[in-house]
Amino acid sequence: MTPGTLVAQGEYALGSGVIREGNEIYSTVLGLFYYQDNKKLVRVVPLEGKYLPKAGDSVVGKIVKVLPGKWLVNINSAYLASLDPRNALYDRVDDLSRVYNVGDLIFAKIDYVNEIYDASLFTKVMPYGKLRGGKIYEIHPTRVPRLIGKKGSMIYMIKQGTKSKILVGQNGLIWATGKDKMTDVIGKVITIIDNEAHISGLTDRIKEFLEKEGEQNS
């Protein structure tokens, strides 16, 4: 579906990626068309696009500024998110930069997002908090569901195959730590998913790839 394609005519509920003009419903993004029969819901799932913060998502972010009362965090979106010390610490701390300083990577949950996408973060409990060491990978935010797979099947397979620790942010940033060789393999796997997420049989291809790499490195 390209923007401006007619997707439906008549009474339907609108999901994301569509717009109503009179009786007709048109696609607004480049993506794949989905129709949910029970709700009469039409939507177009985008193949491209930046991350928009959503409450409940887990994200990987980078501290860009320490203000007297909060941290500003780059979460790979159009907007900066803020982290309030009350959502990060149990005790009062005078100098916030001693907890998270500029450049630190954190894994956080999005607590609340308002209408203009100001997101407030939460890092009080495990596994949220500062990320030490490891490597950061990037993927299209729209491909994150494919990286995780149904009920986490895909990411579980990658974790098992590479014997690494991986944290996936819904914003398209992925943090992983493990043996050097294995982190390279993770990078390759993520590139494959990024490029081929829309082609069917992805799981099998990843499985095959992981097995092949596993043999070479053992």
């Binding site: 390209t2 923007p3 401006g4 990626g17 717009i19 003009e21 048109y26 607004t28 993004v29 480049l30 985008p46 193949l47 491209e48 696009g49 930046k50 729209t142």
Partner: peptide, 11 residues
């Protein structure tokens, strides 16, 4: 613009 995933009414 479409490639950047920005929603458009039409091309």
């Amino acid at each position: 613009l479409v490639d950047a995933g920005i929603p458009m009414r039409d091309l």
